[in-house]
């Protein structure tokens, strides 16, 4: 089993040592980085540090040097975001820091996405995402979308203030079977339940799996509304989507 000292990058070692507490997560993260090249570890380190300029440069250099785009995404960007996600969940960092890491990830994805789309790699599944009617907040939803895309899902982003009809139309139009709804306000959370009811009325509820999230949303509220899953953060959202797609 790989050990912490098998990871060459000192910053990554310190991050794991300081912030990854759960033994199962620690073992998984150490395993992830121990197999990554030093170049990928450097990309991950810059991402964790929120340094988008360095991620941009290192990713471009790696691609130019012939490193496979998938390797850069998995061993550099996604591996870095795995540490970011855990630090966020454990309240070691907050949304501004996560946003700066997301900005760094986007800077890397700019080089990778065109290569992956040209290669026509099969997606894990198709997800429709949107913030519910009356709610114009989208930071959490956008983080989830970024992580879902990074994990290999095709995501159709309906944006904010999404009506029940738009959710239903999008599911039908794109043939997606996973729906993600987000709400930041306690005043708009009930619109998640109304959307689920609209899917029941339209006779489509059994065709899709619905996940919900957002700062005030809880597992109890998700259960009460009849959602299939609740994700506390972007990592949980990806894990739910994989479970729904049978790829967990």
């Amino acid at each position: 089993m790989p050990e912490l000292h098998d990871i060459a990058n000192e910053f990554i070692r310190q991050e794991i040592d300081e912030f990854i507490e759960r033994p199962d997560e620690r073992a998984r993260i150490i395993g992830l980085f121990a197999k990554a090249s030093e170049q990928m570890q450097a990309i991950a380190a810059a991402l964790i540090d929120g340094d988008h300029e360095t991620v941009d440069r290192l990713t471009a250099e790696a691609i130019a040097a012939g490193v496979h785009a998938m390797e850069v995404m998995d061993d550099g960007l996604i591996a870095g975001m795995a540490i970011v996600g855990i630090k966020f969940r454990q309240n070691f960092i907050f949304v501004p820091e996560v946003l700066s890491c997301a900005r760094a990830m986007k800077a890397g994805m700019v080089h990778i996405e065109p290569i992956l789309s040209a290669a026509g790699i099969e997606k894990l599944g198709k997800v429709i995402m949107g913030t519910v009617k009356g709610d114009l907040h989208d930071i959490g939803k956008n983080l989830c979308i970024m992580m879902l895309r990074g994990a290999g899902f095709e995501v159709i982003d309906l944006g904010v203030d999404t009506s029940q009809d738009r959710f239903i139309d999008a599911i039908e139009e794109h043939g997606a079977n996973i729906l993600g709804m987000s709400a930041l306000l306690t005043t708009t959370m009930p619109n998640m339940g109304k959307t689920i009811e609209a899917f029941i009325d339209a006779g489509l509820r059994d065709d899709i799996r619905i996940m919900v999230g957002g700062a005030p949303v809880t597992q109890d509220f998700a259960d009460e509304m009849g959602a299939d899953g609740y994700g506390k953060d972007a990592l949980a959202c990806v894990s739910l989507a994989k479970q729904f797609a049978g790829k967990a």
Partner: peptide, 15 residues
Amino acid sequence: IQWEQKDNWPTVRMR
């Protein structure tokens, strides 16, 4: 501002 209707809250278009 999106002023909305009776069943919804007005919101700032922060985008």
